[in-house]
Amino acid sequence: MNPDVATDIKDLSATLASVEAVMDLDGLRAQIADLEEQAARPDLWDDPDAAQKVTSQLSHRQSELRKVEELRSRLDDLPVLYELAEEDEGDPAAAADADAEREKLRTDISSLEVRTLLSGEYDERDALVTIRSEAGGVDAADFAEMLMRMYLRWAERHGYPVDVFDTSYAEEAGIKSTTFRVTAPYAYGTLSVEQGTHRLVRISPFDNQGRRQTSFAAVEITPNLAQTDHVEIEDKDLRVDVYRASGPGGQGVNTTDSAVRLTHIPTGIVVSCQNERSQLQNKASAMVVLQSKLLERRRQEDQAKMDALKDSSSGSWGNQMRSYVLHPYQMVKDLRTEYEVGNPGAVLDGDIDGFLEAGIRWRRTQ
């Protein structure tokens, strides 16, 4: 085997070994055994919420263990691929296949290594994503919808379920705002680096004179509420408004006032939900979103106190975090990490894993 290839495989093995140590595979197997024992109890589904929590945790833990075990197995098989390629010198495709597998392993191990950097209190939770159009008029509303599609396509690529709670459509095109949940292991920790102001520069399709337009959209990421969280909301602090659900262009999509808007009076936080058929269901969903936003607010306040104690000046990422330039050149660039891609079309179609990994690594250094 080529010495450089052998050294590279050794380095990959060392990286994977450090990941295995951080993940504590023996501890992970013990957790799985305990959860399997709980899942096998005949009275498990007497409490559906608790049963859902057990089965979800079991599925996530099994997936994590299976992922790292498969990587180790593939890495162990890699020297054999190179040996077979050397034996069959007349087949250059065999060596090319071995090189391709080595590069794929490098990417997969790097992705798993990034996962081990997610150790925040809420990082393994599902994520609630809120997108709002900001400065830029109809272009900003259109950009907000482009970002919504980008995250939905990213989730679809990975097979992550998404629940859209509310979408407020703009009059001419695009959306004013949307809130949806991404259900996946470490969804919050992974997507939290997307929080901030996103900027789009392009020739506006809504400008008759074809001028270049800069528009902005805000992305907010909060952890989904768990049963163990306690966010008390007193009735006197809550205003409930009901209204008729609407679709694109303001058209009514419901003949009853089933959509619900909740306003938390002390903080001014407003959430709404219109995806369910009944007012009761919409109120329940809206309460989940409101409690999650209050939970994130509490987390940020706690973090601010910790930063003050540490006299840290690196707590803020700044407002604007990424630029999407479609004219006069093609580029998407993260302004914090300097990570950039020259294919905005692919990024806006959900290919954002490179930005997510760069953001997680960057945050760890702050």
Rank of each mutant, 00 (worst) to 15 (best):
E156K: 12
R72Q: 13
G120L: 07
E103P: 01
T178H: 03
L84S: 07
P344G: 08
E70C: 01
I265G: 05
R261D: 13
R29V: 01
R41S: 07
V341R: 03
F206C: 14
D349M: 02
S278M: 08
Q320G: 01
T263Q: 09
S63Q: 15
P223V: 05
Y82I: 00
K333C: 08
F180P: 01
R261V: 01
A286Y: 12
R72F: 04
A95G: 12
D24G: 08
E301W: 02
T183I: 01
V164A: 02
K176W: 03
Q300K: 13
K104R: 14
S111H: 09
S316T: 05
V341N: 11
K333N: 08
R298K: 15
D77M: 12
D46K: 06
P3Q: 12
Q281M: 09
D311V: 03
M321H: 06
D8A: 09
E220W: 14
L238P: 00
F216C: 13
S111T: 05
K53Q: 14
L35M: 02
L326A: 05
L81N: 04
M331D: 08
A304F: 07
N275G: 01
R149W: 07
A184R: 14
Q209I: 00
K305M: 01
R298V: 06
D8Q: 10
Q195M: 07
V193D: 13
A217Q: 13
D237T: 05
P79F: 11
E86M: 09
R132D: 15
Y169H: 15
G159P: 08
D91M: 11
V332T: 07
G174D: 10
E171T: 06
V201R: 12
G345K: 08
H60C: 07
E37H: 11
I360R: 02
S292G: 14
F216E: 15
G120I: 10
E234F: 10
Y82V: 00
P185Y: 09
H327W: 09
A33N: 07
D126V: 00
L280M: 06
K310F: 03
L280V: 13
Y82H: 02
D302C: 02
T228W: 08
G136F: 15
D108Y: 00
S18M: 07
M148Y: 05
S246V: 10
A141W: 10
S168L: 05
S278I: 05
